[in-house]
Design a protein around this nucleic acid. Sequence first.
DNA 1: GCCACTTTTGAGAACGCTCTCAACGCCGTG
DNA 2: CACGGCGTTGAGAGCGTTCTCAAAAGTGGC
Lengths: 363, 363
Amino acid sequence: MRRLDEVRGMATLPDVAQHAGVSTATAARALGGYGSVRESTRQRVLDAAEVLGYRPNVLARSMITGSTQTIGVVISDIENPFFRRSLRGITDTARSRGFEVLLANTDEELEKERSAVSLLAARRVDGMVVCPADAGDRKHLREVIASGTPIVLLDRRVSGLAADTVGIDNRKAARLATERLLSLGHERIAIVTGGTPEIRERLVRPDMRGVERLSATTVGSRAAGYRDALTAAGITMRPEYFSANGFRREDAVSEVHLLMDLPQPPTAILAFDSIQSLGALQCFRERSIRCPEHVSLLGFDDAEWADLVSPPLTVVTQPMYEIGVAACERLLDRIGGEQRSPVHDRLPTVFVERSSIGPPTHG
Amino acid sequence: MRRLDEVRGMATLPDVAQHAGVSTATAARALGGYGSVRESTRQRVLDAAEVLGYRPNVLARSMITGSTQTIGVVISDIENPFFRRSLRGITDTARSRGFEVLLANTDEELEKERSAVSLLAARRVDGMVVCPADAGDRKHLREVIASGTPIVLLDRRVSGLAADTVGIDNRKAARLATERLLSLGHERIAIVTGGTPEIRERLVRPDMRGVERLSATTVGSRAAGYRDALTAAGITMRPEYFSANGFRREDAVSEVHLLMDLPQPPTAILAFDSIQSLGALQCFRERSIRCPEHVSLLGFDDAEWADLVSPPLTVVTQPMYEIGVAACERLLDRIGGEQRSPVHDRLPTVFVERSSIGPPTHG
DNA sequence: GCCACTTTTGAGAACGCTCTCAACGCCGTG
DNA sequence: CACGGCGTTGAGAGCGTTCTCAAAAGTGGC
């Protein structure tokens, strides 16, 4: 009669009920704390559960209630400073509200994202926090939302998707950072994006359509902000100053080398995330380039090491933990039944000036 | 007849069966790819599933099969460099074998660990990778194992628990690191452990019992290795050279300040993880202490920034990703039914010498 | 000691799936 | 034409819960 239990040793509700000499319904009431149960029987059931080491099977419960008390988180890489800090915000919030977190990495690959979303949906998570890959179709996300599972987008915005978004104003932050560089006298400012070459092509196009379509993505928005600042200052963009060739540190290192090999190398570099900053720093070290004397470096995200490298890095900080918290809260509200139309939270950034930027040596 | 579906829009197997004009059994066979189904009906079912956007309910399947294809991971902090890298190893391995990962942070708090383990058990995960808190009873772990859910311990070893362990030989690694410092001529070597004050007390006790009991924990093992090296060199340990007062960077900073305020400050510091290294570095910067001229610094774990701080940090590297992979593989093997007695994997460490250590100035 | 009323209890359906078992139609063979 | 064998199909039980509904057991007033 206890097939699985003999193997896994898990006591079930009928086991407890039998041990306490009551029906499963009564046992369920006593354990679940609903309905009304005589105090003496309640105690008897609780004791029986204790003795048998009973643990309710959440799966069975979920089948009835339709809720799994679980949210799925789909991000490109837990090791990325932005995501790991946000993830912490998400897990802390979820946990405090009684939800569990199912995790999936995508490495910015659309195919992995699709399968992750599909798997999480099959697992009937109550909702998802997704940081969508920069390109490709969003049918899989649309389907999930259509089926009634809310999705909150992290960091990135996808047009035409009925989902809440939480992030920062990337375009503005990048514009402000670029303007600071301009105000120091820099005119040859390069960006190291940590994006794909495709992004670069789109950005370089003379019509604005490229930028507009891009503004849905983080890299695109930031690139657009960079472009805004240059345009406003009357400086023409140079395509060779756009680095976009992968997400890893090695990619950034070689990209910055390429930049410095240019006949007219940039006098300042704007790195789009802390991996890119690290890559630039490593390149500088390899070439014995002094920063900020020879080149200025300005990065996104205040990593744990940002104030301890040499020189201490000037950065645009985004409230990563708070973004995670906000995203999770929004999602839990939706799961709780909130109905209003999608909202797009934009959390404030902070500019932290340290010593990695200065006036250009030859401008 | 479709109560939940009208809300969540999820098609069920009976829906698909009805749409295809077959029984649920046949639909299940066609979708599940087992039994024998006529090719034409199979196609009809598949089409119906496609049309209705059918997604199998994994929960219901799990109830039958008794397997959730999910593992739980209980670690102290995803943001910690060691854990986040290991976690990546775990998730990659799990995913490649068709398993999902349920995540929980404990912040080294036993209570959180207990509730996390209990929740995961209630969710019927097929197994868990746990990095147990350094102290306290292990009843919760023992219960889970007794109920038939395998556990693999990450990094730390718990005596008397029938669980596999994956980590490094912490005692040896610490001994080797200390010996290197000794060989440079250092005699006043301090450790910054990132542990609790209790650990310190136990280690200082004149009898060996303290150390022995500690050797089950990471900090304890490393402290023991440090002690081994000093003892072998005929140097008496100084209790004031043990820093153990929390896990955060600020804690480390103030501990190192305390160390440097000593009448006889250490000439070398051994930091037990990269957070502690960062703390030491920050303290040095605050006091304008030059490293390695004034103090040598040797750390555990080769963080992404270790070669880019100044001075580039000398470290003992552990193969964090591989530890995660090994732990997950071991666990999946157990889940697969492997029966042999617990094994304890010890992966090799690598000593990476950079420029943060040198001979003492006055020895 | 009887009736209306409340509290406590149990039987059993439902959730969505898997899987056993028996039945069905179809074939060739004796 | 009866028979065994095979591929295909459907009915229905079961997984461990929750929850509805009705029956049983108490409770108090008269």
